[in-house]
Simulated scan of single mutants.
Amino acid sequence: MKIHQLEVEDSFLITPEVFADRRGTFLEMFNQPAFREAIGHPLSVAQVNCSVSRRGTIRGVHATALPGQARYVACAQGAIVDIVVDIRVGSPTYGRHVAVQLSADNRHALYLAEGLAHGFAPLTEHATVVYLCSSNWSPGTEIQINPLDAELALPWPREHELLLSDKDRDAPSLRECAERGLLPAYADCKARYAELNDYALT
């Protein structure tokens, strides 16, 4: 299993080794020792979510207020583009995004640390996405950013009519979220990562 950091700091692409034979394939979707070595602390899984989406759907862009919710995302069926957005005020990569393709064929996974936002869209007629969450969903903590924010200019597929929830379609832009004080601070996120790393050493 290979884990390397993407262009947005504190987001990582996980590339597992896939073993294939005439019966099919086998792989490790998650390996705690490998994850801990790459990230600095283990992934504590509090909740596992699964969504099934049809082509044209955009889910996101979402994050969670600190202490936050880290996510480990994989596509079990079909294919998606998952877009990570750095919304941490003061970050060297603030406002930047990185898009990765996750699919049932490549078996890649994506990890994004607390404070980062992401959204995804199917590249196939249907896609099933499974993601491990470091904390449980808590009402009132979600940060929602409009996925069609013109300033972000995220590279969503445009071949089909876009399907968004009302909450996502009506969500504010990144600039508006910043003006309202809704975004996490880069320094606070880094302090949270250091806290997790220190706890892992005890």
Rank of each mutant, 00 (worst) to 15 (best):
M1S: 12
K2W: 04
I3C: 10
L6S: 13
L6D: 15
S11N: 09
T15G: 02
E17Y: 10
E17G: 02
V18Q: 07
A20G: 03
A20T: 15
D21I: 01
D21C: 03
R22S: 14
R23M: 07
R23V: 02
G24R: 00
E28Y: 07
E28L: 06
M29F: 11
Q32D: 14
Q32I: 03
P33N: 05
R36T: 15
R36G: 09
A38D: 08
G40V: 12
H41S: 12
H41E: 14
S44P: 00
A46P: 11
Q47C: 08
V48G: 02
N49P: 08
N49I: 08
C50G: 06
S53P: 05
R55D: 00
R55P: 02
G56H: 04
V61R: 02
V61M: 10
V61N: 03
H62Q: 06
T64F: 05
P67K: 11
G68E: 02
G68C: 08
G68F: 00
A70G: 15
A70F: 08
A70N: 09
Y72N: 06
Y72H: 12
V73E: 01
A74K: 14
A76M: 09
A76N: 06
V81M: 04
D82K: 14
V84D: 07
D86G: 03
R88W: 04
G90V: 11
T93W: 07
G95D: 05
R96Q: 15
R96V: 00
V98H: 15
V98D: 05
A99P: 09
V100F: 05
A104K: 00
N106R: 13
R107G: 01
Y111Q: 06
A113F: 03
E114N: 14
E114S: 14
G115I: 10
A117F: 04
A117P: 04
G119F: 00
F120R: 13
F120P: 10
P122S: 07
H126N: 12
H126I: 13
V130N: 08
Y131S: 04
Y131G: 05
C133S: 15
C133H: 12
C133V: 13
S135Y: 13
W137L: 10
P139N: 09
P139R: 09
P139S: 13
G140N: 12
T141G: 00
E142N: 06
I143A: 08
I145V: 13
N146K: 04
N146E: 05
N146W: 02
L148E: 04
L148P: 04
L148Y: 00
A150G: 00
L152F: 03
A153V: 04
L154N: 06
P155L: 11
P155S: 12
W156E: 11
W156V: 09
R158I: 01
E159D: 15
H160P: 01
L162A: 06
D166L: 14
D170W: 00
L174V: 05
R175W: 02
R180N: 13
R180C: 10
L182I: 02
L182Q: 07
L183Y: 02
L183E: 03
P184A: 08
P184F: 03
A185K: 05
A187K: 06
C189A: 12
K190I: 10
R192C: 12
Y193H: 13
A194F: 00
L196C: 10
Y199S: 09
A200Y: 08
T202D: 14
